[in-house]
Design a protein around this nucleic acid. Structure first.
Lengths: 346, 346
DNA sequence: CTGAAAGCGCTTACAG
DNA sequence: CTGAAAGCGCTTACAG
């Protein structure tokens, strides 16, 4: 592979001059420039990004550690992150934690070793010492979706409380009173918040959230199945199961189907995080949709701000309820009473 | 950030010695080793991977350029690739081409500039000059899923011909005679092969595949919708629409639903590539399942073989038909006649 | 405008 | 077993 030396020799100039034309430095004669460019072309020369990074101490690379690539929510997040990063001149390296703190730390360590310019994380747990160290050491960092409490790092996320209230209003209007939730891990902020938001919304209707109706999931499909089976085995099973993410509702559907039960006649289902397939499931699933693409882009902008020495603020965007048929058919009257929940999808 | 010099100073040895203990070089005294390790610990030192790569000309990194991250098939492929790579001591950087040749080349160039040790590609088009150059220059490369004809690069993919024959047998047994396909881009091997396999299988039943029944899609949902609308507008619409990937069948479902038609009563649907949601769509979708995880792992093994100087062979794994209800309810008799198509899902 | 030289943080023959 | 030194491919003051 041709190096800058080869180009310099071919063009009859010094490597310094080659470097200058490559970096658009103003003080290069037109003649030198054309000769260098010709040499670059002739040799098919491409600067070695590794060497450049070592010298400049910049990799123009962002690290993104997400909780689970197989979750369509995070896939979309990763896609929008890469898009925005590319627009701003950065590449991104994705690490998939698979909801495992050890894997998360593996990727954070790897990314740090590669001297990425900044780190975007959706933490799988509440307090990785490794990440705390990185923050202390001054690594530019931004949390997306999930965050670590008490750490001075900007957070870009969505607030689902209003949407959860809309959901509970919708369920209550449909006559449901026994509502259960498949929670995410308590070690994650989203795992906690969604339960808290659900509980608060229930309280507003004088409804209780008994412990038996809080199933401990891990944001992955299998846990949704397991928890739902537990709910169905209860002496008094819930009328509604709200899954804290889209993968766990898949598991819940599996469990319900395995018992030969029907949704929503025998049990209602709803989920946090909307995906295109929810329109076509049997029945279409009522879900809370996050502005995922916007979150990814905002997170990148915040991180690049930090990298370039500015001081970005945290960003919170609202989530919204998308009503479909998995909780029961709303009567026309209900729709009129609570129009906010009656969003149509385009 | 502490460098090797700081560690050397702290331990009272030379940087050479530090380097030796870090790389498990045998000739280091026990005393020096413990002092270095203590210094590493005290300073929280981590070797700079950029510097190491520059020096050793190895990045221990694989590049993976996939056609579309939002396609669950490729997401799963990416996940298995990363898993196997990690097991073999490599990291992977993913580039998402979004089915765009220009974006694909952008990522290939970026990856090459970063001096990745090897490249795994599922090409979006038939012949990127950039990739051809890279092959000629000796970059270790392996194609996954799709490949470029006439290029001396190992290919790891699955052969769907038998499964497509099973599908056509299934459809024919159900009484369907007018079968249409939503094809992928002709510039991709999978785009061509799936049409060819479908046509061949139809011929075995004396059925024709008229041009009007071949819709040109691009492997993304929107094209599935557009093509399906075209099919439905035909004077004699097909009885079955077979989508060459899972995203296009989503679009097809959208189109069918928008017309208020029912699957499979009004029109039957099937897809290449199976995903967990197909079990729960309305109706559950009959699909051809690839051994995706196995493909990803085999591709990594082949690439690492090449990187380490061995000469891996191409790998072809069979796909299989998974019958569900989107093509019509098979009668018991049909099932008995053609048991190979009657796979149950676990 | 241009080049010689230093240096980024490592690894690795080479001598001892 | 250990250290001094060269060198990977760049960029960038510094002199001219």
């Amino acid at each position: 592979m041709a190096s800058i030396k080869d180009v310099a020799a071919e063009a009859g100039v010094s490597v310094a001059t080659v470097s200058r034309v490559l970096n658009d430095h103003p003080s290069v004669s037109a003649d030198a420039r054309t000769r260098v460019l010709a040499a670059v072309e002739a040799l098919g020369y491409r600067p070695n990004a590794v060497a450049r990074s070592l010298r400049t101490d910049q990799t123009h690379t962002l690290g993104l550690v997400i909780s689970d690539v197989m979750n369509p929510y995070f896939t979309e997040l990763a896609r929008s992150v890469e898009e925005e990063a590319r627009a701003l001149g950065y590449s991104v390296i994705i690490g998939n934690a698979d909801e495992r703190p050890d894997l998360q730390d593996h990727h954070v360590r790897n990314l740090l070793d590669r001297r990425i310019d900044g780190l975007l994380v959706s933490p799988t747990d509440g307090g990785s010492p490794l990440m705390l160290d990185a923050v202390r050491a001054g690594t530019p960092m931004v949390f997306v979706d999930r965050w670590m409490p008490g750490v001075a790092v900007p957070v870009v996320r969505s607030d689902g409380r209003a949407a959860v209230r809309d959901l509970v209003a919708h369920l209550h209007g449909l006559g449901h009173r026994r509502l259960a939730i498949i929670a995410g891990p308590a070690a994650t902020t989203t795992g906690q918040e969604r339960v808290a938001a659900f509980r608060e919304a229930l309280q507003a209707y004088g409804l209780d959230l008994p412990d038996a109706y809080i199933g401990q999931g891990d944001f992955q499909a299998e846990s949704g199945r397991r928890v739902t089976e537990g709910f169905l085995d209860l002496p008094e099973p819930p009328e509604v199961v709200f899954a804290a993410d889209n993968l766990m509702v898949l598991g819940a559907l599996d469990a319900v189907r395995a018992r030969g039960m029907r949704v929503p006649q025998d049990i209602a289902l709803a989920a946090f995080d909307d995906i295109p397939w929810f329109v076509h499931t049997d029945p279409p699933i009522t879900a809370i949709a996050q502005p995922t693409g916007e979150l990814g882009r905002a997170a990148v902008r915040a991180l690049v701000d930090r990298i370039e020495g500015r001081h970005p603020e945290s960003v919170t965007l609202p989530a919204r309820l998308v009503v479909r048929r998995s909780c029961g058919e709303p009567s026309p009257r209900n729709v009129a009473v609570n129009p906010v929940t009656n969003r149509s999808e385009s």
